[in-house]
Write a protein that binds this DNA or RNA. Structure first.
Lengths: 204, 204
DNA sequence: AAACATTTTAAATGGTTGTTTAAACTATTC
DNA sequence: GAATAGTTTAAACAACCATTTAAAATGTTT
C-alpha cells in the first residue's frame, strides 16, 4: 500500500518534533507544524485533537529517548571505569547529534513541571542496574568512594551537557569558531572522564 | 517627590523581568507584563518602544548579574582551594535564590544566538583575574594540574547549575520532596567541591 | 492661571493564534 | 456501483497578540 510515502499522522508528528525541539512549545504555531509537514492545518487537530496533546505525546517520546541509552549502558557487563568512559562518550555523542534535546526538555519542565512529569519507573530501573550493584560492591570493599547513585549519575552527565547547553555563551566569551568549540569540547570531555575516575575510584 | 512609589518605567521593567524569567520571551505577553506591573498596556510601549526592546534591555542586565559575582570572586586575594569553594558556594546560593536565571539565559540564547550575544570584554576580564595568575603559577611549579581556564571554570559551575536546571526531573525520578532535594543538593555540592579540588590540586 | 510638556487612559488597529466547520475527495465494503 | 467510512481541503471562528491612536489627566513652567 504505502511504500515510500509516510502516513500523514507520522509526517505531522515528525515535523512537529523538529519544530518543537527548535522553538519550544510557546514558540511553535500550528501553522509552523503544518508547513513543515507540508499538510493542511486542520490535519494536526484531526489526528491529535490539539496542539497540546500532540506536544505531550512527542515530549514523552523524547524523554524516553533521552534516558534509555544511559540505562542500557549502566547494564553493560563491563568494569566501572570503562562504563564511566562509555557514559560520557555516549553523552557527548548525543549532545553533538541532537543539540536541542536537553535544553528543550529542561526548559519545558521548568516552565510547568506538573504538566509534563508523568509517572516513571526510572528510579527502580536505575537502582537495579548492573552499575548500581557495581557501585555498592565497590563501596563495600573500599575500592570506590562512598557516594550515592543519585549523585554520581548527574556528576557524569552534567559537565558534558552543560558545555553544550551553553555552547553559544562559551563560543562568544572565548571567541571560538565552530571548529574551535569542537576541539575545546573534546578536551573538556577528556578532563571530565579523568576527573570523575580520579574522584570515584580509590587507588592505594 | 516620589518617595515610596517607584517610577512607572522601573515598575514595568521589574515586572517584565519577573515574567520573562518565569515564562521566557515567547511565553510572555504584553498584557502579562502590564498586569504584573499593575499599569496600562500602552505604557510598555510608551517607555520601551516595543516588547523586544524591553526584553533586550532586561536580558543584558541579567547576563551581567550572572557573571559579575564570579569575576569578583576570581579576583579575591585568597588561595585557590578557598577560591574554588567560594565559587561553588556562590553558585549554589545564586541557583537557590534565582532558580529561573540560568535556564532563562541558556534557552533564550539557544533559540537565537545572534539576537542576544552582544560584544563582551568578559574573556579579557577573566584572563586577567588573580585566579588566572594563580592557575598559571601553580601549573608552572607543578602544584596544579595542567588545565586551561576555559575548562576549569565550566567544570566548577556546571555540576551545581545543572543540578538546579534539572531540579524538576531529579525530584520526579528520585521521588524527592522540596526538603529532600535541599538535602540532596547540599550533599551534591560537597561532592563537587571535593571532586574539583582532588582533580586540580596535585598533592604528593 | 494660562501655556506647555509629560504621563496615563480606553479604545481601536490589523494581524495571528488554536480550533472548528462543512463540503470535497478518496478508499473500502457490500 | 451504490453506500459507507476515512481523509483532506478551504474557509471561517472567536480569542488574543503587539502596537498605535487620540483624548484625558496630571505635572511643570511661565
Amino acid at each position: 500500500m504505502k511504500c515510500i510515502a509516510e502516513k500523514s499522522e507520522d509526517k505531522i508528528k515528525e515535523a512537529a518534533k523538529r519544530i518543537f525541539l527548535k522553538k519550544g512549545f510557546d514558540g511553535t504555531t500550528s501553522r509552523d507544524i503544518a508547513r513543515e509537514a507540508d499538510m493542511n492545518i486542520a490535519l494536526t487537530n484531526y489526528y491529535f485533537r490539539s496542539k497540546e496533546k500532540l506536544f505531550i505525546e512527542i515530549f514523552k517520546d523524547l524523554m524516553e529517548m533521552y534516558y534509555q541509552s544511559v540505562v542500557d549502558i549502566l547494564n553493560k557487563p563491563i568494569d566501572i571505569k570503562a562504563k564511566i568512559s562509555e557514559i560520557i562518550e555516549n553523552n557527548y555523542r548525543m549532545m553533538k547529534q541532537e543539540p536541542d534535546l536537553v535544553i528543550f526538555i529542561m526548559n519545558e519542565i521548568h516552565k510547568d513541571p506538573e504538566r509534563l512529569l508523568i509517572k516513571t519507573p526510572l528510579y527502580n530501573q536505575i537502582k537495579t542496574t548492573v552499575f548500581s550493584q557495581q557501585l555498592d560492591a565497590g563501596i563495600k570493599n573500599g575500592t570506590l568512594r562512598d557516594i550515592r547513585i543519585e549523585n554520581i549519575l548527574p556528576l557524569m552527565t552534567s559537565c558534558i551537557e552543560f558545555l553544550f547547553l551553553g555552547k553559544g555563551i562559551h563560543q562568544k566569551i572565548f571567541s571560538m569558531t565552530d571548529e574551535d568549540f569542537e576541539a575545546f569540547a573534546q578536551s573538556h570531555k577528556e578532563h571530565v572522564k579523568s576527573m570523575i575516575c580520579h574522584y570515584l575510584i580509590l587507588e592505594n
